[in-house]
Each structure stands twice: as C-alpha cells, then as structure tokens.
Design a protein around this nucleic acid. Structure first.
Lengths: 110, 110
DNA sequence: TTGTTATATTGCAATATTACGATTAAAGAA
DNA sequence: TTCTTTAATCGTAATATTGCAATATAACAA
C-alpha cells in the first residue's frame, strides 16, 4: 500500500507518528539544529550549510512549516525561517510523554 | 530518488533520524505503548490488539527489533516481545537532547 | 506420522518519499 | 523597463514504505 491506516489508531498515536516523521530525515534534523544555533532566523544559507539542492531544502522546509514547527518570514527577495517555540514545546511535551513511559518492571520473559 | 543522502550528515543526525523513523508510524507507536503497558512481554495478541494483518504486524516488529528497541523470545510456538530497556534509554537520551535544544532568544525576525 | 497453532517470509500492488533540473514568481537594482 | 537574486513550484525518476494474501517454518499435540 504505502499508505498508513490512520483510522484504526488514536489521535494521540497519529500525532506522535506525525511529529516523529518530521525528524525521520537527517536533512530536517540538520535544518532544525541549524535554526536553533542561528537563532536570529536564517535565510537560504541553509542550502549551502546543508549539502542539498535548493528545491530539496525548500521541500523539507515546507514540511516542517506545514507541521508548524518553523515559521517563514519574507524579507525582500529572501525568506527567513525560524523555530516556532509554541509548537516546538507542544511537540516536545507530546514526544517526551511517549519517551518517558516506564516499564512496570515486575518480571518478564525477556 | 526516495533515498536519503546520509553521507552528508553527521552520525548523530542520522541516528536521530533513524530512531525517529521508528516512531514515524502509528502502528509502531501503538506496539511500543502496548509493550510498555503489558510489561510482562506479549505475544501475538498484538495482532488482535492493533487492527492490522499478522504479516504487517510481524514486519513492524522486525523493524523495531532491528533497531534494538524490542527483544523477541521464542516460547514454544509463540514469540514474546518486550521493550529492550537499555536501547530504549539510550534512544531516549539521544532524542531528549535533540528536543531540549534552546533558542538563545536574543531577538529575531520571526 | 499427521494435524494444529503461531509466527516469519515471500511476492506484489498501491502509495509515499527523496532528490533535483527546469521553470516560475516576486522583489530589488540598474 | 530589464537584469539579478532568491525562493517556490512543477515534473519526473529512483527508491522506500505500507499492507496483505499466500506460503513457509517451527514447535507442539495427538
């Protein structure tokens, strides 16, 4: 198929998967890390910073923007991107809750 | 292409992406959550718990196992799966470090 | 042995993702 | 206006992912 059966899962499960998918490509990881480092936004030097073609970077930025993790600001002919702190912290909470699950640790077979 | 250019990214970036990809599908999220809940491992009732066909669940389990996030234990005709706490906490540390990045917050354009 | 049960593997169809060349669009400079 | 720069979009090729029916495998029961 290639298409996930999202109907059979909870909203929460689908949301975790959606955010996780955003980090599921090293280019998007690199973009986000760079945006955190160069906090005063950043324009298209992401293209030279990361070694991918301009349309490719643009596509990755679009995905991150659609999720709300980053914002884009037009400045003349260039566009400034930056982390959207509100969505980032909401996402962080959701992911952390998932990662922090505890094994009740009362013996097991493995 | 469909193939990520992993060579141009750091090991750390690729590792984050690999783990994130594991959570990038709601079925795998559901499997992991269930394994945490039913801590005393779990066999193939994952198939009935989650609403996907047996081969599909088996395939998702294989991916999680390859990453080391879960372990499988053969018990007669059935197989018991459970979280691998060591790999899980290593992964948690890596992901948390990524999620905990801070904006240096000295003004920006967005 | 034969049957049964539980899981893995194979093969394949449908769809998604990644990447980039070519092109377009929009802003500013000359 | 025309040229340049920057970024988005289009189109497309290569590959990956998801899902399942069919089949194989392995352990046990009868």
């Amino acid at each position: 198929m290639g298409i996930a059966k999202t109907e059979i899962f909870t909203e929460a499960q689908n949301e975790i998967a959606l955010f996780a998918k955003a980090f599921g490509h090293p280019a998007r990881v690199a973009i986000l890390q760079h945006l955190f480092k160069i906090n005063t936004c950043v324009c298209g030097d992401l293209v030279s910073e990361i070694g991918l073609a301009q349309p490719t970077i643009s596509q990755h930025l679009k995905e991150l923007k659609q999720l709300g993790l980053i914002k884009g600001n037009v400045e003349g002919t260039s566009v400034c991107y930056c982390i959207n702190p509100d969505v980032w912290s909401k996402m962080k909470q959701i992911m952390t809750e998932f990662l922090d699950q505890d094994l009740c640790d009362n013996g097991s077979c493995c």
